[in-house]
Design a protein around this nucleic acid. Structure first.
Length: 495
RNA sequence: GGGCUGUUAGCUCAAUCGGUAGAGCAACUGACUCUUAAUCAGUAGGUCCCCGGUUCGAUCCCGGGACAGCCCA
């Protein structure tokens, strides 16, 4: 077996065995950490050399040794815990021989150790712990990645995210920011009296979006279930139940391709607000995102790849059809009939369209292809064709469009919102054609009769919005791929 | 699903027009008591992703496969 191990691993296992032989548990759990590194730095980071010379400052902390610089009879090493890093200095003089031997013979970079000592400042004025006692808490058997280049191999980074996190500080920062972003959104919504709820992830009839679901099975009930593709229909049931403002931040699952923008499981925020409409939601979302950008990045303008994004409100608002003219460069009379738009799309060799498609559907496709990639700064596209908005309220003046907007940033859809269709009879009709369309695509579909019942009970006038959290995190952390903002993106298992 | 590219030491990367591979870091040995990627000297470390084929000989050429990345649908 030993022959299969590389020499570093073998050496460290030898050390581990010797520690045990000497009565030292290399995986001890007796140390109680009273102070983290951030606390120490906050308390003493501003104290100067004289302070430490005149006031002996005992500290005790623990963390992973990131790097050791040894001089034989003395060494510097860097200790990191979940909150910060601090340099330590250990010297043969004045230390019990046993303690120094433990360090010089048995401790490797990567080990997790407790240290006790007093603070001082080095010649270069760096706050440092002069170690008087050291204890190995966890022996690390595998070496750390290269100290300068870190772990670069993308596949290893995702498969061994724990090593990625140890080696690459930018990665740690991204996931801290991700948590801050979600915290901000939560407190923003809470401050508007939204109620956070949890709705079923396993659903017998997956609705609320058009996507292929993952299938699973409940044995005891002998029941096929699907992982939700959206929480929408459940959240609106709750508004019917009297929770006027609800939201859920949670995982959705779509059994579709993987790309720079898509992971099979991803995190969505959906929130619903009774007695408002989609127009109000535009200003609400605008406020949330601009404050978010200020909170996370300290500015309304942020860099994203080659682009600069400006989150200063108000965001541009434009009707989908107008965007095809203004941004897409089409003349109004080029896109005023299904035939003409079909012609345009065919000329572009667009797949999956049919001569029988309605004008609205074709316009949406043309928009996706031509206009969407050009939408860099945040922009609300409004007045979506009714055909592609089965759960949205029909506009009172223009019957062909829904009271709906989508928010685009950096050429990507970030949010989707509408005034909710709360007429049960119209919803039932729309479900019928949606079910037909889904069945045509081979998706499981049946009318959600219970949802219709809920509407019959009376859903107040409500507007709701979904925001892709991963995509928002990508923007605010200047991340190129969705996999950079998901801790464990889906990969095929090896072998 | 299609196309292109990649996979070499623990990590980051070289090299080979087909003759069994090299550097830095990490490791090990030695020197060194204020370093910041410490420094200096030396040593060791490889199923060149896997399986076939061609060949006297394959990490390299050919075929198949695995995994990954990018682009397209």
């Amino acid at each position: 077996m030993d022959q299969e191990l590389n020499i570093i691993e073998k050496n460290r296992i030898d050390k581990l065995k010797k520690l045990r032989e000497n009565g030292i548990n290399p995986f001890s759990n007796k140390f109680e950490k009273k102070e983290n590194i951030k606390n120490i730095k906050e308390k003493y980071g501003s104290k100067d050399k004289d302070f430490f010379e005149n006031n002996r400052t005992e500290v005790e902390t623990a963390g992973r040794i990131i790097i050791i610089r040894s001089f034989g009879k003395a060494s510097f090493f860097r200790l990191r815990d979940g909150f910060g890093e601090l340099q330590c200095y250990i010297q043969k003089d004045g230390l019990e021989a046993k303690d120094f031997e433990l360090f010089s013979e048995y401790v490797d970079a990567g080990d997790i150790c407790a240290v006790k000592g007093h603070l001082f400042r080095t010649k270069t004025n760096e706050l440092t712990i002069k170690v008087e006692h050291l204890e190995i808490l966890t022996k690390s058997v595998l070496p750390l990645p290269e100290k300068w280049h870190g772990l670069k191999d993308i596949e290893s980074r995702f498969r061994k995210r724990y090593v990625d996190l140890i080696a690459n500080s930018e990665v740690r920062e991204i996931f801290k920011k991700r948590a801050e972003i979600i915290n901000f959104i939560r407190s923003f919504l809470n401050s508007y009296d939204f109620l956070e709820v949890e709705t079923p992830i396993m659903q017998a009839n997956p609705g609320g979006a058009s996507a292929k679901p993952f299938k699973t099975h409940h044995n005891a009930l002998n029941l096929d279930l699907y992982m939700r593709i959206a929480p929408e229909l459940y959240l609106k049931r709750l508004v019917t139940g009297g929770f006027d403002r609800v939201y859920e931040i949670g995982r959705n699952f779509r059994n579709e391709g993987i790309s720079i923008k898509h992971n099979p499981e991803f995190t969505m925020l959906e929130f619903y607000m009774a007695y408002t409409d989609y127009k109000y939601l535009m200003s609400f979302v605008e406020k949330m995102l601009s404050e978010l950008s200020m909170h996370i990045c300290g500015s309304y303008t942020i860099d994203y790849g080659e682009e600069k994004l400006n989150f200063e409100p108000p965001f541009k608002r434009i009707k989908l059809k107008d965007s095809l003219v203004e941004i897409g460069g089409f003349k109004p009379d080029e896109i005023d009939s299904a035939d003409k738009v079909f012609g345009l799309l065919s000329a572009r060799n667009t797949q999956g369209i049919s001569k029988t498609d309605a004008l609205g559907e074709l316009l949406t496709i043309l928009f996706d292809e031509i206009v969407e990639p050009k939408l860099i700064n945040p922009v609300f596209i409004t007045d979506y064709p009714i055909e592609s908005s089965p759960l949205a309220r029909r506009n009172d003046i223009d019957e062909t469009v829904a009271d709906r907007f989508e928010l685009f940033i950096a050429g990507r859809e970030i949010g989707n919102a509408f005034s909710e269709l709360n007429d049960p009879l119209e919803q039932e009709e729309r479900f019928k054609s949606q079910v037909e369309a889904k069945i045509k695509e081979g998706l499981p579909a049946e009318t959600d009769n219970d949802y219709i019942e809920a509407l019959k009970q009376g859903l107040p006038p409500t507007a709701g919005c979904g925001i892709g959290i991963d995509r928002a995190v990508m923007l605010l952390t200047n991340s190129y791929s969705i996999r950079d903002v998901i801790l464990f993106p889906l990969l095929k298992p090896i072998k």
